[in-house]
Write a protein that binds this DNA or RNA. Sequence first.
DNA 1: TTTATATACGACCGATTTAGTCCGATATAA
DNA 2: TTATATCGGACTAAATCGGTCGTATATAAA
Lengths: 135, 135
Amino acid sequence: MIKLSKSVEYALFAIKYLNYIPSDKLVSTKELSESMNIPYDLLAKIMQKLVKTEIVSSVQGTKGGYFLSKSPKQINLNEIIKAVDSEIRLTDCMFENATEDDCKRLNDCSLRSPLSNIQNKIIQLFTSTTLEEII
Amino acid sequence: MIKLSKSVEYALFAIKYLNYIPSDKLVSTKELSESMNIPYDLLAKIMQKLVKTEIVSSVQGTKGGYFLSKSPKQINLNEIIKAVDSEIRLTDCMFENATEDDCKRLNDCSLRSPLSNIQNKIIQLFTSTTLEEII
DNA sequence: TTTATATACGACCGATTTAGTCCGATATAA
DNA sequence: TTATATCGGACTAAATCGGTCGTATATAAA
Ligand code: SF4
Ligand code: SF4
């Protein structure tokens, strides 16, 4: 299936909101979820993933919240997908060190290499798309 | 999720096999499934979809089977995906006439248009990839 | 030092989608 | 008439996604 997850969309909305806020102000998950109509608990986990990948930064405790650690121009769509879902894999074998556990056809599969090229082009497309162009 | 379905892979394998066979010879689902190790019933349904979209042709009855109706050069990857799964839709709203039933954010969503552009690029990539390059 | 409010993190559950199975109908060569 | 093939839809099982819950930790402020 070739589709963005809801979580990626929510991440984009959240980053868009953070981008509108003066960068010295913190925004809580509560404010984000209420103003953009995103389920609180789900968004909370998404924000944590964005922190872990250093796309946004967080401050804990009362009056805490999140702020963008990069400008949208410096963030690309592939980063978001990797942070929120996982690395793009067009097939089960698109690992560096895939084994026959990942796909039993691995050793004599003529599709693997050409499909890998296509995957690279997709990743290239996402990587070259900055959030500035999206949000 | 950005991933090809197993069904698309199976379709590619099947078309590859058909391409190796003299075009006047028919190949049954049984032969295809046994020689490429693809579940018979699943492959049977995939073959029917490929027939319906006129990528392969079929002859029914004893001694019947399938043959390629186009050369791999004339078949593109987007056709296969459309035939076997469905049209690519990067989000729930990527319809010509989407309504708020498809996504309640539809009417004031700033993401829709830029994501549509990205989707077009993906479709363009798949459409410009012929099976000759893959199988 | 207590309280209120915030992030962090993992387990869980329900809904949807994908992958695979089964069964009956129809076509046709032998 | 029989054997073998496609056709087509209903069904089940497994995987993934979207969303929820509970608990721990951090910290500003009363
Ligand atoms: S090895 Fe071939 S069949 Fe297996 S996942 Fe990779 S491309 Fe698909
Ligand atoms: S309208 Fe916006 S939020 Fe809704 S599916 Fe389309 S892009 Fe996503």
